[in-house]
Simulated assay, not measured.
Amino acid sequence: MSEIQAHATGLTSQYIAQVTGDLERNVKEQERIRAELEALQEQLGALQHDHSVLVSMREALGGVNAADEADTTAAPSVPRQTTAEPLQSKPKKAAATSAKATASKKSAAKASSAKAPSAKASSAKASSVKAPKTDSKPTLVNLIRSHLEQQSEPRSATEISTALTQDHPDRGVKTTVVRTTLEGLVAKSQAQRTKQGSSVFYTAPAAPEPAAVEPQQEAVAS
C-alpha cells in the first residue's frame, strides 16, 4: 500500500505542476490579447472620429451643390408655341419671325439676369460654409513616436509609459498598450528595438546618412 500511495502522490504532484503551468500561460495569453484589444479599440475610436468628420464635410459640400442645382432649375424657360400659324403673306411672316426673335432675345436676357444673383448667392453660401472642427488631440502612436525622437538613449516600455502619464495625465496610458504600440512601430520600421539581458529597449529609427558626393561633382562645384 505504501508504494501505491507514493506513486499516487507523485502523479498528483505532476498534475498540480502541469495545471499551474497551464494557468500561468493562460493568464499571460489573456494579458497579451487584452493589450491588443485595447490598442485596436483606440485605433477604432480614431477611425470613427475621422469618419464622422468626413461625413460632416460631405454633408456640408452636398448642401452647396443642392443650392446650386436649385438656382439652376429656377431659371425661367421660354414657352413653346403650339398653335398652328395661319396662312399669311410673306411680309407678315417675316414680321412675325422678327418679333419672335426679339422676344427670344428678351427672355434670354431675363434668364441671364436671373441667374447672375443666384450664382452670387451660391458663391456666398459656399464661402460661409465652414469645415467642422477636428480634434487636435494626438494619438498614442504620435505621442510615442515624438517621445522616442526626443530621447538620446534607449527607453523601455515602462519608462515611456511613465513619461507619457506624467505629460498627459488625462490619457490613462497603460504599459501593455504602450508595449503593443511600440512593437507595431518596430514592425513598420518607425522604431528600433534592442535587448539588454532580459530587458527590451526602444529608440527612434536612425536617420539615413547623406549620399557621398562623387569627385567629379566636387570638381565641378569648385
Rank of each mutant, 00 (worst) to 15 (best):
S52C: 14
V53I: 06
V53S: 04
V53W: 00
L54M: 13
V55C: 11
M57N: 00
R58L: 10
A60N: 12
G62V: 07
G62L: 13
G62D: 12
G63T: 01
V64K: 01
V64H: 02
V64P: 02
V64F: 12
N65M: 02
N65E: 08
N65P: 00
A67W: 04
A67S: 04
A67E: 03
D68R: 13
E69W: 03
D71N: 01
T73F: 13
A74L: 08
A74E: 08
A75K: 15
A75P: 11
P76I: 10
P79D: 11
P79L: 14
P79F: 03
Q81C: 04
Q81N: 09
T82A: 06
T83K: 04
P86Q: 01
P86L: 01
P86N: 02
P86V: 12
L87Y: 06
S89F: 02
K90H: 13
K90Y: 10
K92V: 08
K93H: 06
A94E: 11
T97K: 13
A99D: 05
K100F: 13
A101F: 11
T102L: 08
A103G: 14
A103L: 14
A103D: 14
S104P: 01
K105A: 14
K106F: 15
K106V: 15
S107R: 07
S107I: 15
A108Y: 14
A108V: 14
K110A: 13
K110T: 05
S112G: 14
S112Y: 09
A114L: 15
A114C: 07
K115C: 06
A116V: 01
A116Q: 06
P117W: 15
K120V: 11
K120L: 10
K120F: 07
A121E: 15
A121V: 14
S122V: 03
K125Y: 05
A126H: 01
A126K: 01
A126E: 08
S127D: 04
S127H: 06
S127A: 14
V129T: 11
K130P: 02
K130I: 06
P132S: 08
K133L: 05
K133W: 15
T134R: 05
D135C: 02
D135W: 03
D135H: 04
P138V: 00
T139F: 11
L140G: 03
V141R: 06
R145M: 06
S146A: 15
H147L: 11
Q150P: 08
S152G: 13
S152F: 02
P154M: 07
S156A: 03
S156Q: 05
A157I: 07
T158K: 12
E159H: 08
S161L: 12
T162K: 14
T162P: 12
T162N: 15
T165Y: 00
T165C: 00
D167L: 10
H168P: 02
P169C: 04
P169Q: 15
R171L: 07
R171Q: 04
G172R: 02
G172T: 06
V173R: 00
T175A: 10
T176V: 09
V177M: 14
V178F: 00
L182R: 06
E183G: 11
E183P: 14
G184T: 05
L185R: 08
V186I: 15
A187H: 03
A187W: 06
A187G: 07
A187Y: 08
S189E: 09
S189L: 07
S189Y: 12
Q190C: 01
A191S: 03
Q192T: 05
Q192A: 07
